[in-house]
Write a protein that binds this DNA or RNA. Structure first.
Length: 576
RNA sequence: CGGGAUGUAGCGCAGCCCGGUAGCGCGCUUCGUUCGGGACGAAGAAGUCGCCGGUUCAAAUCCGGCCAUCCCGACCA
C-alpha cells in the first residue's frame, strides 16, 4: 500500500479523551475514531490488525475441530426468558423495542442462541462432541465505558460453545480450548498467563481467565512460583499467622470515646490493627448479615457475594444498624446473642484476645475470643488476598502483577441445557442435557492489550504476527527521480515475494515520516536516503530495538525475508 | 447511579469573571524555498460558540432546563 493513497490519519497531538497508551496510540496512529461513548470505528490499520488476530484464532480453533458459524445480534426477549437471564442479566444487557413493542436484546453473549440451535439440530449422541464458534460484534451497556476499545459498549468477540455427552467429554473440550488459547495468545506475540477465575453471572463450575501482562491492566493477579495464579478477587490463600499459642484472657469492655475506625481504635489502645476484628453489616438479597474480618484486611466482595448467593450487596446504613442490628455504627461487634447471621473469615478462627466493637456508643471489647464469646454461624474464606499472602498450594509468599483479561473459558455444565430443555438422545434412547462449555476472546481488546504490552514513547511496536504491515518502506527523497524509481522497484520486489509492505511515498520531510513510522509501529523499516543511495545501500531499522543495519541493494529482499523470519521465530518459540 | 469537570474550525486550546457579534497553535488548500527525526515564508478556506428557552438595545460571555463527552467509585471480553 502506498502511504499517499492510504487512509491513515495520524495525529501529532495527544487526544484529550485518551487516558492509557493503547487508546492514545490507536487514535494518534489513525487506527481508531470515536462515534460515541464506548463506540468506535476501526480504520484500515486497525481492521488489518483485527483480521490478523482473527486469522490466528480461526486457525487454532479449526485445528481443534471447531466449526465457525454466525449468529444474530438481535435476540428476542423470549429467548432470554427461557434461560432466566432476561431478569438476572441486569442493566448491562442492551435492550430495545421494535415498532410492534416487541422487546429484544443486543447479544452480549450467545449461550441462549447456541443452546437453541443444539436443542433442535444436535439430537444424537453420534453428533457429539461438537464445538461451534463465531466472531461477532457484541454489545454490553457498560456502566462506564473507558480506555477506548478496552472497555467499550460495542466490541468484537470470538465466542465458542462446546457440547459434550458427559463431564469427562466437557473436560476434554475445555482442555482443548485451554491449549488453543495458550497458542493463540502466544502466536499473537503476547505474554499471557491463565489464572483461576470467578464464574460470575454466566454460571458453571471451572473457569480460567487469560491475562495479558501490562501495567495498565485492570485486574491484579497473584501468582506463585509453584504455578498457582489467580485474580486477586478470586485468589485463595494459606491461613495467615495465628495466635493460637496465646492464652485466652478475660473479656473486658473498654471506653473508646469517639474512636470508630480501625486506625483510631488501634492507635488509641496501642495495639496493632491485626489484633482488631472489623464487623461489617451488609444488606444482602434476603436480609442483613454481619461479616467479621481482621482489622488490617479487606473483605473480598466477590467471595462474599458467591458465598451468600446474592446479586445485590450493599453496606447497611447507620439507621439500619441501629434499628435492625440494635447496635451503633462504628461500634458493631459479634459478642453476645445476635438477631442476624454472623459469618467470619476463616483466618480468624485461631485469633486470640482480639478487640471488637461492643454494640454500644464509645465502647469496645478487648480479649475477645470468637469461639468462646460469640456465635459464628459459619467460617468462610472471605478475605481479599494481597501481595505477600501465602500460596494456597505450596505456602510460599505470592507476588502480584497487573493484567488485561483477553479471554475466559468456562465449564457451564448443564446449566443452559437444563433450563432450556436442550437434550440429546443417548445410545439407550434417554434424553440427556448436554454438558456445555463456553469460551470467549475479546478480539478488539486483544489488539489494545498488544499495544499496552508493546509500545514506547514514540509509538506502537507491533508483534509481527499481528502487525498491520510487515515492512514499511520509506522514501526520504521523493523529489529525486532515480531514488523514487528505485523505491518503486523495491516495493514491487517485496510484493512479489508476498511481503506486506506500507510504502511511504509521500512528499514530506524525513523527520515527519520517521515520526509517523515509529508511531504506527510496523516492525521493520527500510529507509532509502540520498547518501546511502549513492553508495548503493539502504538502511534497515528494527522498530523494537532501534537497531539500524545497512544493506546493499542486491541483498534487500533476502535480508528483509530473513529479518521477518527471525521475528516470527522469536514468537514461535513461545508457542507450545 | 453518586462525586468532579468539560462542551468555541478536523485536532489541541484561549476568550466567559467584567455582555458589544470570535481568536491562537497544529492540520487542510495554493505558490515558492527547504529536504535524514513532526521545516520556513506568503496567500487562502474553514466555526448556527452542544441544544432549547429566558434576561438585555445587544449573549460564546449572565440565568434556567436539557443533551453529550471525560475523570473517580461499584460491573466485565
Amino acid at each position: 500500500m502506498r502511504f499517499s493513497q492510504a487512509f491513515i490519519p495520524t495525529l501529532k497531538e495527544k487526544p484529550a479523551e485518551a487516558e492509557i497508551p493503547s487508546h492514545t496510540l490507536m487514535i494518534r496512529s489513525g487506527m481508531l475514531r470515536k462515534l460515541g461513548s464506548g463506540i468506535y470505528s476501526y480504520l484500515p490499520l486497525a481492521k488489518k490488525v483485527i483480521n490478523y488476530i482473527e486469522t490466528i484464532v480461526r486457525e487454532e480453533l479449526d485445528d481443534k475441530g471447531c466449526q465457525e458459524i454466525l449468529m444474530p445480534v438481535l435476540h428476542p426477549r423470549e429467548l432470554w426468558e427461557m434461560s432466566g437471564r432476561w431478569a438476572v442479566y441486569g442493566p448491562e444487557l442492551m435492550r430495545l423495542t421494535d415498532r410492534h413493542d416487541r422487546e429484544f436484546a443486543l447479544g452480549p453473549t450467545h449461550e441462549e442462541v447456541i443452546t437453541l440451535i443444539a436443542k433442535y439440530d444436535i439430537k444424537s449422541y453420534k453428533k457429539l462432541p461438537i464445538n461451534l464458534y463465531q466472531i461477532q460484534t457484541k454489545f454490553r451497556d457498560e456502566i462506564r465505558p473507558r480506555f477506548g476499545v478496552m472497555r467499550s459498549r460495542e466490541f468484537i468477540m470470538k465466542d465458542a460453545y462446546s457440547f459434550d455427552k458427559d463431564k469427562a467429554g466437557l473436560q476434554k473440550s475445555y482442555d482443548d480450548m485451554y491449549d488453543a488459547y495458550s497458542r493463540i495468545f502466544a502466536r499473537c506475540g503476547l505474554k499471557s498467563v491463565a489464572v483461576e477465575a470467578d464464574v460470575g453471572a454466566i454460571g458453571g463450575s471451572s473457569s480460567h481467565e487469560f491475562m495479558v501482562l501490562a501495567e495498565t491492566g485492570e485486574s491484579e493477579v497473584l501468582h506463585c512460583e509453584c504455578g498457582y495464579a489467580a485474580t486477586s478477587e478470586n485468589a485463595k490463600i494459606a491461613p495467615f499467622d495465628d495466635h493460637s499459642s496465646e492464652d485466652m484472657k478475660e473479656l473486658a469492655k473498654i471506653h473508646t470515646p469517639d474512636r470508630k475506625s480501625v486506625e483510631e481504635v488501634s492507635a488509641y489502645l496501642g495495639v496493632l490493627p491485626e489484633k482488631l476484628i472489623k464487623t461489617i453489616v451488609y444488606k444482602a438479597d434476603d436480609g442483613f448479615v454481619a461479616i467479621l474480618i481482621r482489622g488490617d484486611r479487606e473483605i473480598n466482595n466477590v467471595k462474599l457475594a458467591n458465598f451468600l448467593q446474592c446479586l445485590n450487596l450493599e453496606f447497611a446504613t447507620e439507621q439500619e444498624i441501629e434499628n435492625i442490628v440494635k447496635s451503633v455504627a462504628g461500634f458493631v461487634g459479634p459478642v453476645g446473642k445476635k438477631k442476624i447471621k454472623i459469618y467470619a473469615d476463616e483466618n480468624l478462627k485461631s485469633a486470640k484476645n482480639m478487640v471488637t466493637g461492643a454494640d454500644e456508643l464509645d465502647y469496645h471489647y478487648k480479649n475477645v475470643n470468637l469461639e468462646r464469646d460469640a456465635h459464628i454461624d459459619k467460617w468462610v474464606d472471605l478475605v481479599q488476598a494481597v501481595e505477600g499472602d501465602l500460596c494456597p498450594k505450596c505456602g510460599k509468599p505470592m507476588t502480584s502483577f497487573r493484567g488485561i483479561e483477553v479471554g475466559q473459558i468456562f465449564q457451564l455444565g448443564d446449566k443452559y441445557s437444563t433450563s432450556m430443555e436442550a437434550t440429546y438422545d443417548a445410545e439407550d434412547g434417554t434424553a440427556i442435557p448436554y454438558q456445555m462449555g463456553c469460551y470467549g476472546i475479546g478480539i478488539t481488546r486483544t489488539m489494545a492489550a498488544a499495544i499496552e504490552q508493546f509500545h514506547d514513547k514514540d509509538g506502537i511496536i507491533w508483534p509481527i504476527s499481528i502487525s498491520p504491515y510487515e515492512v514499511e518502506l520509506i522514501n526520504l527523497s521523493p523529489a529525486e527521480e532515480d531514488i523514487t524509481s528505485f523505491c518503486d522497484n523495491v516495493y514491487e520486489m517485496l510484493q512479489d515475494v508476498f511481503i506486506d509492505v506500507l510504502y511511504d511515498d509521500r512528499d514530506e520531510k524525513a523527520g515527519f515520516k520517521f515520526k509517523d513510522a515509529d508511531l504506527i509501529g510496523i516492525p521493520i523499516h527500510i529507509i532509502v536516503g540520498k547518501k546511502n543511495f549513492e553508495n548503493e545501500m539502504v538502511e534497515i531499522k528494527i522498530r523494537k530495538t532501534g537497531e539500524k543495519i545497512t544493506c546493499a541493494f542486491d541483498d534487500i529482499v533476502e535480508k528483509v525475508e530473513q529479518l521477518i523470519d527471525d521475528l516470527y521465530e522469536e514468537i514461535d518459540k513461545n508457542v507450545e
